[in-house]
Structures are given as structure tokens and as C-alpha cells.
Nucleic acid binder design. Structure first.
Length: 956
RNA sequence: GGGCGCAUAGCUCAGCGGGAGAGCGUUCCCUUCACACGGGAGAGGUCCAAGGUUCGAUCCCUUGUGCGCCCACCA
């Protein structure tokens, strides 16, 4: 029995639990071992995360694909898992420690802290997974992975070691993006350029050998900067070699104000005469451009900041080197000062001594850390890098050749743009939570990269014996006795960028490098579904790693979906407070409604502006479906075994079979093309506007009538089409369809969607397989769910024409009645004027339906329309509603005049085209023919309307 | 500075070389035996602007205007 009211929360909880208990979505099931695999890896959400609207969209689309392919008989593996999200997770746990007033990370030490993070992961890591289950995600949960679990960590180490051996990973000392709050390097992608209102300070740098005076422009050179505090680290001033204002100064020195250091004026193309004063201060240790310029001219790299971006001058060898005697009085004052405070103080001092020429307000882009939000410092440190430029080449080629295609295609341009200008990827992070880099350092700092410490020890001992740092005997002892080599080599403290492990996700989750069985079966995956915001972070890197280690693309298709925005199109963010929580929508309207909404709005290449009214509308759709199934149940509509819809006798039943096949084809084609909105739309229209609005209404008389053969057939067909609808909607609305299927399947016994249904029907697993096998022979099981492709080309034009006539008639009569304000209780007679034999037959067949739906009395036939009747044109014939005394003749004349005007306009338009020789000559044959037909139809319509007007005149 | 995208009904959006569509909202009618989270009938649009291509442009091209996003080291 279907419950009277649709209660999504109750259903979804119960069915979700049943799926879970059944392990309903396991890949590699016994009945699918011979089936073609279909694989998707989930974009692993952060373990710290909770479900947001982006996840909801992303996973809804993946689930649509997975359920769709599963019903088509594929062996579906939707690989789930979570990401350890290095920085994010570490921050969360540190914040927790702080809130609880517990010792901080550094106080408790690395080991204890990591234990704490694992503990936290154990407690909260399941949240997002449960939320995905609430959404209905049909992942194979038995295979859930975590980027830091044992197998995946092994993959990470193996990849690192191999790439290092191949020279594709290396250590280098250069400028990195340093986050002074998180105290780690970050990659270029983790830096957000933000517009900031600042100033441009113009500073006077005195020329060596001249007496500095602010009044004497020949005694100094002006440089402009947005970061005056970096002047402490200046080691040169650059001017453009073609800039005549400065050519005479090239090679001379300036005296760095306040500091007293002599630094050279160099000629470099980098200096743009148009910008600022045309002379630019060079600070190689604190600016990416200056670093390059410094390299070209051999300028010193003077680092003046510590890791927390405080001024660090005491004991700073870089700074003190070459510094004139007695010029360090500022040092005491500045040392340890925050960079922004130092800026203020320095500007003040420069001004005091006349070195500040002017201050211009200036808005410019300033780099910020995407996690910390603080201003990023270019900072000189040793870090590990991936040679991305080399690795990008095969990944670029794979897209060029079409081995991997983006949908929509325009994202390929974005991909190329970035890949072709790719920079070395900084992969080391000064964090604790993550994969520790498998590199060890010997006493002299030499690096040994190896998969295990033992291996590293072996390499190191061999090397140092050879170098005669230790004797062969010592080496031998140390190799044998761990106690003797204690502290001889030390492991790199740093961990890897989170995205390093994510890049391996498509194969590391399948068991690589340990187990190749699943890799062989499920790699490459079939499609990657993700948002455009992580094309660079993730997609590009999976492409690189996949090409390098699997020698094959990780996925032939990348479907890029939109961002979900709020109703007004703003990006959802906590700070704006416009975040719509998918879970509260699920609570309110059900996961099915939310899923359907997201799918229906997922048009390619456009962001989704989510309005809750849409969700409500699709919840109503679910209710409609619910009630339709309840109606079928109340009328004892049961699908008999072996029912063949193509063999139906009743026109109405042939019509709905025809419409069902058509809708199924539309939905199938749309899903195959990743046009989720078209698929959802087609299903929606079919269910509501075809099945509910017309088929069930038209079927009522038959089901309640006396013709038992017709009654039996109609009941069967109502059940058949209902089952097809459930299958069609299942990828979008899995919970409600599962429930309705399970409740009705006991009598339908056609196809089992999932083990849950099997349970409901009371089948054993063996019986279930038999049912599936028999369903494969069903001649008209629509392709969306069938085990084998079936003829999806069943059509019945005659049925379509007949039902079309009924629909047109009912619609037209209703329209007139509404216009004439005829109360529903009044049944108006209908006269079919000059009806053909076919029309008369139709009218007799459909009289009771038409009478009920159009509120008609007796239906009769006549050669001429009675006087004072409203005359309607139904497919070229006249239908009259004798409404003498009821109708307003004037209003009716107006109505007919309007119709006449329309017909005449149509004729005119067609004539204009058809009399145009060029149109007839150039347009496609069928277009011209269509135009002629339109004209003929309009001419006929005009004649009928004129006749009607004539009769109206006589009636007066 | 590069690149991408969007301007269609009051709102949110589909569509796309041959007579403008949906959902929501809105107006009117309906306790018609599945469903008022429903049924029925309407109203509502120089498809941003100007040129061009074409027999024909909301759709293709160019330019402009407005808006959004991504990338970039410019003092």
C-alpha cells in the first residue's frame, strides 16, 4: 500500500538505511562480472568539510550517471573517499586546541599533534560521507579511501621517489610564496591576488659622491615603491638602458638612505621608463621580478624578514654583509617589528631626512594566502619542486589529440592556457599534517631520497664510505646496528602539498601500486565530473600523473559543471551570509527534490542561481508522481508477466506506449550528452503533462467501464508506463522511485532496481538474477533500464493523431467556456458540423471522456452549425457549442474576428515568403513545402472562420 | 594586460538560421471520486544597441554598452 501522503524525510531515511545495509552499490557484483565497467572517481571532499551546494550539484550529476549506467547493466564503480586537506585540517585542529585552551601544536610536538589530528579525523571524518549518503550518492562505500591511508601513502612515496630519480622532482633555493601566518610555502595557485588601496612612495636615493639635498635633483635619483620597508634589502637600482634621463648614471652607485649601503645603478630592460620615475629599486630577496634582475646583474640577495614577516636584522648575515660602520642604529629599533609597522616607521624616518619626495595613492594587486588571508611574502627558502613544464607536455598532447575531451569544450582553452605557461610546482609545505617527504639528509646536508628509511640509510652509508667521511668498518657497524646510526641521517620535516596525493586519485584508489587487478579493470575511468575552479589544482595534475605513471589518460571525458550561486548570482560565502545549506533543503523538501532541481538547472556553461522556489516546485513534482502511483494502485493496475505494450489494441494505450518510448529516448540521449537539464525537463514534461494530465484522465472511463478486455489492457498499460517512469526518474530521484517501485513491484515483478527492491519483493538473490535475465527479453523495456539494447523506435502515428484530436477538442472547449464564464455545473451540448466518418468514430469512442473533461452534455452531428453557437475549429473541422442565450454575440464576433485576423496574417506571411523567388530557389525543399502547407492550412481556417461569422450574422 | 562567459516574460533560466519556451510569480474560475504540494483558462517579451552576412537573424560575424568570472610579476 502506498501511503496517503508523500513524506520524503521518512522514505529517504528508511531507504538510505536499506541501501547501506544491503551494500547496494558494490562494484564487481557477481551478475556484472561480464559487464562493461563504468567508473567514476569522486572528487574527494575534505575530511574537514561538510556538504555544501557545490558538493550537492557535483555528486548529484555523478549519481545520475552512475545510476543510469547501472540500470543499463554496466558494472559501475563510483569510487568514494576523502582528502586529508593538509592546511585546512591542520588549521581546524589547531583552532580546536586554542578554543579548548590546550597546549598548541608546537608545545605538544609533532607526534602528539598528529595523533590528535588522526583522532579528530576519526571523530568527524565520517560527517561528509554520511551527508553524501543522505543526498543519495550511490558510491561503492565498501571501497572508501582516504588520501592518507596506507595504500595511498605508499603510492605517494613511490611516485615521489620515481619522479626524483627521473629528475622531475628536485630541491631548489628560490623565492616562494610564503605565508607568514601559516608559516609555510604555498603554490602559485594558493595565492589570490586581491585589489588593495595602497600608496606609491617616491623615495630619493642619494648619488654617491654628491652632497645630498632635497633641493638639488642632481644629487639623487627617485625610485617609486609600494613596499618601502623592503628598501632595507635593496641591492641595486635599475634603469632602462634606453632611458636618456639616466644613461649617465649607469654604473654609478647610490647610497641607500638610512642604511648607508652603496648599491649600484644597473641597466635592465625590466625597468619601464613609463612607470613611476623610470628608476626602480631592486630587492632580489623579496620580489619575484627583482630576483630575476638580481640574477642578471649579480646583485646580493638580502633577506630582511623572518618567517613571520617581522624585520630581522640582528645577526642577519645577509644584511650585515658589506654594511658600513656605524650605520646600524636603526637596526635595534626595527628588529622584530612587524612588516607593516616597520613600513610606517621607515616612511617617517625617510621623510624626516628629506628622502621622501611624495606619496601617491595607488590601488594595486596584493597577493594573499587563500587559507590564511594574510599578505603573502616572496621569501627565499629551500623547497621541493615538480618539473611541471616537462610533465605537462604529454598531458597537453592528450587533450590536443582528443584522448581527453572537456565538456563543454571551451574549457580546453583554459586548460591549454595554463598548462602551456606552467611554472615549477612547489610541493613542499612546512606543515605536519600530510605525507612527509621521503628524503633524508646526511651530516653534510646531502639528500637521500628513498622509499624507506632503511633504503635511505643504505644509500647514505654507501655514499659516505665512498667519500671517506666514515670508514667502511663504521659503515658496516651502522648498517647492522640502528642504535649506532641514530641521528646520522635525518628525515626532511616537510610534508607534501595535498594536491600531490589528489593527483594520483584515479589510480591510487584502485590499489596501485600494490594491486593491478582493479587498475586493469577500472582504469581509465569513464568521466570526471567537477567544477571549473579546480581544473588547475586537480584536473591538470591528474592528467600529468596519469600520463606519466599509467601511460594513459585518467578519463576520456571531463565534464565541467557550473558554480552554484545564490538567487541573485552572488558567490555563496559564509562572510556574505548567503549560503544555502543543502541539508536544510533536504530536510525541508527531500533529497529527491533538491537533486532534481540541481539536475534541471545544470545547463552547460552557465552558473546556477538557486532559488528555493524551484526546489519547492520539484518537491511538488515528486508529490504528483506519488499520487499518480497511488491512483494506479487504487485502480488495481498491475503489470502482468509477459505484457507487451506494442501489442496493445486500445488506441489510447498504443498512444502512451508511443509517448513513453519517445520520452525514454529523449532522456537517454540527453544524459548521454551530459545535458542533464534537458533530461530532467523531458522526464518532467512526460510525467506531468503527458502521463498525468492526459493519459490517466483519458484512461479513467476505460478503467471504470464495462469493457473488460479494454479495462484489463488499460490497467496493465497504466502499470507498465508507471514502471517505465520510475526507471526514467530513478537516476534523478532515487529515493521516491525506489520506494514506489518496491511498494508496487510485488505485483509487477518486472525488474529489480536494487537489492532493496529485491528484499521488498521477497526474492532471493538467485531469483533476482532470474528476473533480471527475463527482463532482458522484454521487447519494449526502454533502453534506459534494459540489460540489452531494445528497439526504441516504436511509434504509432494513428494513435497520436487520434489522441491529439481529443486533446485539441477538450482544450478548445475549455478555453471557450472559460472565456464565456460558463459555470462548471452547466453542461453544454456539442455539435460536430460536417464531421468525417473518422471524426464521428472518434467522437463516439471518446464521448464519455470528452464529456467529462470538457464539461459537455450531449454530442451530436449535423451538416450545419445551429444558430447562435460558438464555433470552434478542431483540426480543420467545425465543432459548435450551441449557447443561444448564454453567449454574448458581440463578444463571439470579436473572438472570431481575432481568429480571422490571425489566419489572414499567417497567409500574408506565407505569401510573402512564397512569392519571393530567392526564397523558393534557395531555401531547403522541406522548408518551402512546410510553408505551402502552412499557407493551405491558414486558407482553410480562414474560410471556416468566415463561414462562422456569416452564420453569426444570420443569428442576429 | 591577456582569456572566458552572460544580456530572452515581473523573477530564475532553457532555446536557437525558417512563425518566441519552461518553472516560479501574477489574474480569473473550480471542495470534478490520485493529487489544493491540485485542476482549468488567461495576461505578460521592438529576444541589450548599431552595423554586416543570408531568400530569411533572437540565433552567425563585427563593433559598442552593461555585468560576471579566470589568469598575470608590473615599481
Amino acid at each position: 500500500m502506498i501511503e496517503k501522503t508523500y513524506q520524503p524525510a521518512e522514505i529517504e531515511t528508511r531507504i538510505g538505511a536499506a541501501w547501506d545495509a544491503e551494500g547496494a552499490f558494490k562494484a564487481g557484483r557477481a551478475d556484472r562480472v561480464d559487464a562493461e565497467p563504468y567508473t567514476i572517481v569522486i572528487p574527494p571532499p575534505n575530511v574537514t568539510g561538510s556538504l555544501h551546494m557545490g558538493h550537492a550539484l557535483n555528486n548529484t550529476l555523478q549519481d545520475v550517471l552512475c545510476r543510469f549506467e547501472r540500470m543499463r547493466g554496466r558494472d559501475v564503480l563510483w569510487q568514494p573517499g576523502t582528502d586529508h586537506a593538509g592546511i585546512a585540517t591542520q588549521m581546524v585542529v589547531e583552532r580546536q586546541l586554542m578554543e579548548r585552551k590546550e597546549p598548541g601544536r608546537r608545545d605538544m610536538g609533532r607526534e602528539a599533534f598528529l595523533e590528535r589530528v588522526w583522532q579528530w579525523k576519526g571523530e568527524s571524518g565520517g560527517v561528509i560521507v554520511n551527508q553524501l549518503k543522505r543526498l543519495g550518492a550511490s558510491c561503492d562505500w565498501s571501497r572508501e579511501r582516504f588520501t592518507m591511508d596506507e595504500g595511498l601513502s605508499e603510492a605517494v612515496v613511490k611516485v615521489f621517489v620515481q619522479l626524483h630519480r627521473e629528475g622531475l622532482i628536485y630541491k631548489d633555493k628560490r623565492l616562494v610564496n610564503w605565508d607568514p601566518k601559516l608559516l609555510t610555502a604555498i603554490s602559485d595557485l594558493e595565492v589570490l591576488q586581491t585589489e588593495v588601496k595602497g600608496n606609491l612612495w617616491h623615495l630619493r636615493y642619494p648619488l654617491e659622491g654628491k652632497t645630498f639635498s632635497p633641493e638639488d635633483p642632481t644629487s639623487f635619483i627617485v625610485v617609486a615603491t609600494t613596499r618601502p620597508e623592503t628598501m632595507l634589502g635593496d641591492s641595486g637600482v635599475a634603469v632602462n638602458p634606453d632611458d636618456e634621463r639616466y644613461t649617465h648614471l649607469i654604473g654609478k652607485n647610490v647610497v641607500l638612505p638610512l642604511v648607508g649601503r652603496l648599491i649600484p645603478i644597473v641597466a635592465d630592460e625590466y625597468s619601464d621608463p613609463e612607470k613611476g620615475s623610470g628608476a626602480v629599486k631592486i630587492t632580489p630577496a623579496h620580489d619575484f621580478n627583482d630576483f630575476e634582475v638580481g640574477n642578471r646583474h649579480g646583485l646580493a640577495r638580502i633577506s630582511i624578514l623572518d618567517t613571520e614577516a617581522r624585520i630581522a636584522l640582528l645577526d642577519n648575515e645577509d644584511y650585515l654583509r658589506g654594511l658600513p660602520e656605524g650605520s646600524a642604529q636603526l637596526v635595534e629599533e626595527l628588529h622584530g617589528m612587524d612588516r607593516f609597522a616597520a613600513r610606517k616607521l621607515l616612511v617617517q624616518r625617510l621623510d624626516d631626512f628629506g628622502f621622501l619626495e611624495k606619496i601617491e595613492p595607488n590601488t594595486h594587486m596584493v597577493p594573499h594566502g587563500d587559507r590564511s588571508g594574510v599578505v603573502i611574502e616572496p621569501y627565499l627558502t629551500d623547497q621541493w619542486y615538480v618539473d611541471a613544464k616537462t610533465m605537462a607536455q604529454p598531458a597537453i598532447a592528450a587533450v590536443r589529440t582528443g584522448a581527453t575531451q572537456f565538456v563543454p569544450k571551451n574549457w580546453e582553452k583554459t586548460y591549454y592556457e595554463w598548462m602551456e605557461n606552467i611554472q615549477p610546482w612547489c610541493i613542499s609545505r612546512q606543515l605536519w599534517w600530510g605525507h612527509q617527504i621521503p628524503a633524508w639528509y646526511g651530516p653534510d646536508g646531502k639528500v637521500f631520497v628513498a622509499e624507506t628509511e632503511e633504503e635511505a640509510v643504505g644509500h647514505a652509508l654507501g655514499y659516505y664510505v665512498e667519500q671517506e667521511v666514515i670508514t667502511a668498518e663504521q659503515g658496516h657497524d651502522m648498517a647492522l646496528d640502528p642504535a649506532k646510526r641514530e641521528g646520522f641521517i635525518t628525515r626532511d620535516e616537510d610534508v607534501l602539498d595535498t594536491w600531490f596525493s589528489s593527483a594520483l586519485w584515479p589510480f591510487s584508489t584502485l590499489g596501485w601500486p600494490q594491486d593491478s587487478k582493479d587498475v586493469e579493470r577500472y582504469y581509465p575511468t569513464n568521466v570526471l565530473v567537477t567544477g571549473f575552479d579546480i581544473i588547475f589544482f586537480w584536473v591538470a595534475r591528474m592528467m600529468m600523473m596519469g600520463m606519466h605513471f599509467m601511460k594513459d589518460v585518467p578519463f576520456p571525458t571531463v565534464y565541467i559543471h557550473a558554480l552554484v550561486r545564490d538567487e541573485k548570482g552572488a558567490k555563496m560565502s559564509k562572510s556574505k551570509g548567503n549560503v544555502i545549506d543543502p541539508l536544510s533543503l533536504i530536510d525541508q523538501y527531500g533529497a529527491d527534490a533538491l537533486r532534481f532541481t540541481l539536475a534541471a538547472m545544470a545547463a552547460q556553461g552557465r552558473d546556477i542561481k538557486l532559488a528555493t522556489s524551484r526546489v519547492e516546485g520539484y518537491r511538488n513534482f515528486a508529490t504528483k508522481l506519488w499520487n499518480a502511483c497511488r491512483f494506479a494502485e487504487m485502480n488495481e493496475c498491475v503489470l502482468p508477466t509477459g505484457f507487451d505494450p506494442t501489442a496493445a489494441n486500445e488506441v489510447l494505450n498504443r498512444w502512451i506506449a508511443h509517448e513513453t518510448v519517445k520520452a525514454t529516448r529523449e532522456v537517454t540521449e540527453a544524459i548521454e550528452a551530459y545535458r542533464f537539464n534537458d533530461a530532467a525537463g523531458a522526464a518532467y514534461r512526460f510525467v506531468w503533462n503527458v502521463y498525468c494530465d492526459w493519459y490517466l484522465e483519458l484512461a479513467k472511463p476505460s478503467m471504470m467501464g464495462a469493457d473488460s478486455a479494454a479495462k484489463t489492457e488499460t490497467r496493465a498499460m497504466v502499470a507498465w508506463a508507471r514502471d517505465e517512469i520510475l526507471k526514467l526518474l530513478h537516476p534523478f530521484m532515487p529515493f521516491i522511485t525506489e520506494e514506489l517501485w518496491a511498494v508496487t513491484a510485488a505485483r509487477s515483478q518486472l525488474l529489480v532496481l536494487t537489492p532493496w527492491s529485491r528484499k521488498a519483493v521477497g526474492l532471493t538473490r538467485e531469483q533476482e538474477l532470474l528476473v533480471i535475465a527475463s527482463a532482458a527479453n522484454d521487447p519494449l523495456v526502454a533502453p534506459v533500464v534494459t540489460m540489452d539494447p531494445v528497439p526504441a523506435d516504436f511509434t504509432d502515428d494513428a494513435a497520436e493523431a487520434e489522441i491529439g484530436w481529443v486533446v485539441d477538442l477538450v482544450t478548445a472547449v475549455r478555453s471557450v467556456r472559460a472565456e464565456m464564464n460558463i459555470v462548471p455545473a452547466t453542461l453544454t451540448p456539442l455539435v460536430l458540423v460536417g464531421a468525417s466518418a473518422e471524426t464521428q468514430a472518434r467522437a463516439r469512442r471518446w464521448s464519455d471522456v470528452v464529456q467529462r473533461l470538457a464539461r459537455l452534455g450531449e454530442i451530436s452531428f449535423a451538416d450545419a452549425a445551429p444558430q447562435g453557437a460558438v464555433q470552434l475549429l478542431i483540426r480543420g473541422e467545425v465543432a459548435a457549442l450551441p449557447l443561444k442565450g448564454v453567449i454574448d454575440l458581440g463578444a463571439e464576433k470579436t473572438r472570431l474576428d481575432k481568429e480571422l485576423g490571425k489566419a489572414e496574417a499567417d497567409i500574408k506571411r506565407a505569401d510573402a515568403k512564397l512569392s519571393n523567388e530567392k526564397f523558393v530557389a534557395n531555401a531547403a525543399e522541406e522548408i518551402v513545402e512546410e510553408e505551402r502547407e502552412k499557407r493551405d492550412a491558414a486558407v482553410a481556417r480562414k474560410a471556416k472562420v468566415l463561414e462562422a461569422l456569416e452564420r453569426l450574422k444570420n443569428a442576429e
